Simulated assay, not measured.
Amino acid sequence: MNLVRRFFASATSPQAMSDAKNKAQSIIDENAVAVFSKSYCPYCSASKKLLDSAGAKYKLIELDQVGDGSAIQAALKEISGQSTVPNIFINQKHIGGNSDLQAKSGQLKSLLAEAGAAEL
Rank of each mutant, 00 (worst) to 15 (best):
D19L: 04
I95W: 02
S110M: 08
A46E: 15
T84Q: 10
Y40R: 11
I79A: 03
F7D: 14
C44D: 09
Y40L: 08
S37K: 12
V66D: 07
S99F: 15
E62D: 06
L50W: 01
V85K: 08
D100H: 03
K109A: 14
C41Q: 04
F89I: 05
N91R: 09
Q25D: 10
V85M: 07
A46N: 07
S53Y: 11
Q15F: 01
E30H: 13
V4R: 12
K21Y: 14
L51V: 02
K21F: 14
I61E: 03
V85Q: 14
A75K: 09
L60T: 09
K23I: 13
D19Y: 07
K23A: 12
S10Y: 08
L112I: 00
L63M: 02
S99Q: 11
E119C: 03
K93I: 09
A11P: 07
G69Y: 03
S26R: 13
A32Y: 15
K48C: 05
S18F: 10
H94Q: 15
D100F: 02
S110Q: 05
P86D: 15
D29G: 01
S99V: 12
L51G: 00
S47F: 00
Q92W: 09
A71P: 02
I61W: 10
N91L: 10
A113V: 00
Q25P: 12
L76S: 09
A24L: 00
Y43L: 07
K48H: 10
I61Q: 05
G97Y: 05
Q107V: 07
A118E: 14
L51K: 01
L112Y: 03
I95L: 09
K59S: 14
L108A: 06
I95A: 12
E78Q: 09
C41G: 13
D29W: 15
V85F: 14
L3K: 12
K49S: 10
R6P: 04
Q73S: 05
K104N: 12
A115E: 00
N91T: 01
S13H: 00
K59H: 14
M17P: 05
D68P: 02
D64N: 09
K77P: 13
D100Y: 01
A56D: 01
F7P: 15
G106C: 03
L111K: 03
G69T: 06
Q82H: 13
L63F: 02
S37E: 06
E119A: 15
G81P: 00
A11R: 08
D52C: 01
P86M: 14
G67Q: 11
A46S: 14
G67Y: 07
A103M: 00
Q102I: 11
I90S: 06
S110T: 06
A117I: 04
G69N: 09
I95N: 02
L3H: 04
I79K: 01
N91K: 05
K23Y: 12
S53K: 10
D29P: 06
G97K: 06
A75Q: 06
Y58G: 02
I90V: 02
I27Q: 13
Y40D: 06
N87L: 07
D52T: 12
D64G: 01
V35M: 10
A16C: 09
S45G: 06
L111G: 11
F8M: 10
L111A: 01
K77N: 12
G69C: 01
I72N: 07
Q15R: 08
L50F: 08
A11F: 08
S26T: 11
